[in-house]
């Protein structure tokens, strides 16, 4: 096993360095998602002026997603369509780009369009990316290049993080000076983990 040590060390170092900015962003997003009230104070959402316009036609003979995509293409809006609400009178859907959220409402009788937009700031972007692609609206998720690409990155991030933790254990195992202290750290971690789960599930 010793012969693998230098290779694993090199991989751990380079992968760790590459992932470190992403890990920091995910960590900041945890704080952002857990402290929404504090976030409101330090980085309030800025509502931008509404836009009203008119579409010459709406393609109604396709699926809601295709219709929504065609509408945003006509309006020149880019981003991920989060979900779609449609009834006989109106089709409405939020479209997100990192930091900018637009809500498009189209009157199906008059083809009048109302676009409301808000600038959410960089901190909320971290929260948005953390939650993407997520478990909701799976059928339409990844309808933009942004989320398609991000999904790949998010998966790669997790697999590499698991590799980092596993290679970290491997490297620690060969450090005799840190072995006993490391075992205490693992035991303490396991006890904390078990206590938390016990409290949550008891």
């Amino acid at each position: 096993m010793n012969k693998y040590f230098p290779h694993i060390r090199t991989l751990h170092l380079y992968i760790g360095l590459f992932l470190s900015p992403l890990i920091i962003i995910f960590s900041i997003s945890v704080l952002v998602l857990n402290h929404t009230e504090f976030l409101k104070q330090v980085s309030p959402v800025r509502v931008l002026p509404d836009t009203q316009t008119h579409l010459d036609s709406i393609p109604n003979d396709t699926s809601d997603l295709v219709t929504a995509k065609l509408i945003i293409a006509k309006l020149g809006i880019k981003g991920e369509i989060e979900h779609i609400q449609r009834n006989a009178d109106q089709i409405s859907f939020p479209v997100s780009l990192p930091g900018l959220r637009s809500i498009v409402k189209v009157d199906q009788h008059t083809n009048e369009v109302l676009i409301t937009r808000q600038n959410e700031g960089s901190l909320r972007v971290t929260g948005y990316l953390h939650k993407m692609p997520g478990p909701h609206n799976v059928k339409i998720r990844g309808n933009s290049e942004l989320i398609k690409n991000w999904t790949i990155w998010a998966d790669a991030f997790v697999y590499l993080l698991i590799f980092l933790s596993a290679s970290g254990i491997f490297l620690w195992y060969f450090l005799k000076a840190e072995r006993s202290m490391g075992i205490y750290a693992i035991i303490l971690g396991v006890i904390s983990f078990a206590c938390l789960l016990f409290l949550l599930f008891k």
């Binding site: 478990p135 997790v158 933790s165 750290a185 693992i186 971690g189 904390s192 983990f193």
Partner: peptide
């Protein structure tokens, strides 16, 4: 670095696996 990493090990695995599960509902 070594000991905090070892302490957080189970938490990192929990959030990694659950993150994968959330992103792959299928």
């Amino acid at each position: 670095h070594i000991h905090i990493g070892l302490f957080l090990l189970l938490f990192i695995w929990l959030f990694s696996f659950s993150g994968l599960l959330l992103n792959h509902s299928s």
